[in-house]
Amino acid sequence: MRLQRCLLALALSLFATAARAELVVAVDTRLGITRLSREEVVNIFLGRYRKLPSGQAAMPIDQPTSSPLRKEFYRRLVGKDLSEINAYWARLIFSGKTSPPMQTENTEDVGPLIQAIPGGIGYLERSQLTPDLRVVLEMAP
């Protein structure tokens, strides 16, 4: 119950800020990557080609389904609604191709997961960044 209320409060506070959020795509500093193009981030998050410039396989991490950040991220990345993103994944999942990004249950797990998973890459609000994370693409509104 408490967890749910925490999440609800989180969702509400994020909702108000999502539209003007400073969204960034980040990886672990240890990967040694400084920059990714928008196209590369599209390829990684839409499961077209999940490879980092370092040669390592990329493991994208999604914000929770209900997160306003997720909605905002895909809007800024490819100009698509979440329903369109869901339809896109329905095609790939049910034709047995690529899997969608791993999805966290809580928005605050994204940062730690980026570091915990080899090749982890995620998007978050700039204020959620920790010193171990490196911004590789800024998602301007």
Binding site: R2, C6, E108, G111, P112
Partner: peptide, 20 residues
Amino acid sequence: ACLMLQPVHPLLFALALALP
């Protein structure tokens, strides 16, 4: 991590503290 989110809402802060 819940605490690190900004802006930290007072209610959020309280809830986060209360979380075991």
